[in-house]
């Protein structure tokens, strides 16, 4: 049994839901994401938010998987702050939906001033509504710098408790920074970028299993919706206890997400 707490199912087929269910997936959370191209209007986001809050939960339910979501405009589309603020203004009307857990995945992409401005606008919305936050950290050479800038930006909002914020896509050079500041950390299992299942298990061995989870971040790019069960196999086959395997792939996401008051596994 496992939870995949970060997966973009709008980009995946129904066959993937079936395979995930067969591998033991009982619940997922899907952060709002970049479509691979810039949406041309706020209305495009309104329709995307309807898909996330209405259509996907039904598709997942066919396989006994509970679907939850996080809403935002992705940092890749934050270079036009006026447009981004129009999208942010659409979010409050969706907050009453039973499957909306909070704001995400917000963060930075190229660590620009406009991205920081829009990150701050999202954080203000989360603080105002006492919402949980799921953070995307930048890619590759931009990750270390972006992770520090994001954590500093969050600290400017005294009402945001780091224990209710998860900083995702950590790697060996960022995991310690994130955990030492009291945030939760997420590891994304990708074939080439981010971490492989082997490196994720190495990171557990080096940094422990408190306040940390694993996810597939399956999306429209090269990714693997079965990455979490593959990491479970890697961990078990190295001789780690079933208890530790369950902790990182089920207990930890359950503990973090349950703080929303809306997360369900059945």
């Amino acid at each position: 049994m496992y939870i995949d707490p970060h997966v973009h199912m709008v980009s995946r087929t129904t066959d993937d839901y079936q395979r995930m269910a067969l591998a033991g997936c009982v619940a997922i959370t899907e952060p709002a994401f970049w479509a691979g191209y810039d949406r041309s209007s706020p209305q495009g986001f309104f329709d995307y938010f309807r898909q996330l809050t209405d259509f996907e939960p039904k598709r997942a339910a066919q396989y006994g998987i509970r679907h939850h979501t996080w809403l935002c405009i992705n940092p890749k589309e934050a270079e036009d702050p006026v447009f981004a603020r129009e999208v942010i203004a659409l979010i409050p009307q969706f907050l009453k939906c039973e499957s909306v857990l909070g704001i995400g995945e917000i963060g930075l992409n190229k660590n620009s001033r406009n991205e920081l401005e829009i990150l701050d606008a999202h954080l203000a919305l989360a603080a105002e509504h006492n919402l949980m936050v799921l953070v995307h950290t930048p890619h590759l050479e931009d990750k270390l710098k972006g992770t520090i800038l994001i954590m500093d930006a969050i600290r400017n909002h005294a009402r945001l408790d780091p224990g209710r914020v998860l900083i995702d896509h950590v790697e060996e050079h960022t995991v310690r920074h994130v955990l030492d500041r009291g945030f939760w950390a997420g590891m994304t299992l990708y074939p080439d970028t981010k971490v492989t299942p082997q490196r994720a298990v190495d990171i557990f061995e080096m940094h422990g299993t408190e306040r940390i989870w694993i996810n597939s971040a399956g999306d429209w790019g090269q990714s693997d919706p079965l990455a979490v069960p593959k990491a479970q196999v890697e961990m078990k086959s190295r001789g780690h206890s079933l208890e530790s395997v369950k902790k990182v792939s089920f207990d930890n996401p359950l503990a973090f997400l349950s703080q929303s008051g809306k997360f369900r596994i059945a």
């Binding site: 620009s112 920081l116 050479e141 931009d142 270390l144 710098k145």
Partner: peptide, 18 residues
């Protein structure tokens, strides 16, 4: 990694080189 610490003025692209 980029070891600078201040935000850039404008994102020139969406991608990263590694």
């Amino acid at each position: 990694s980029d070891l600078t610490t201040t935000p850039i003025n404008h994102a020139p692209t969406k991608g990263a080189t590694g």
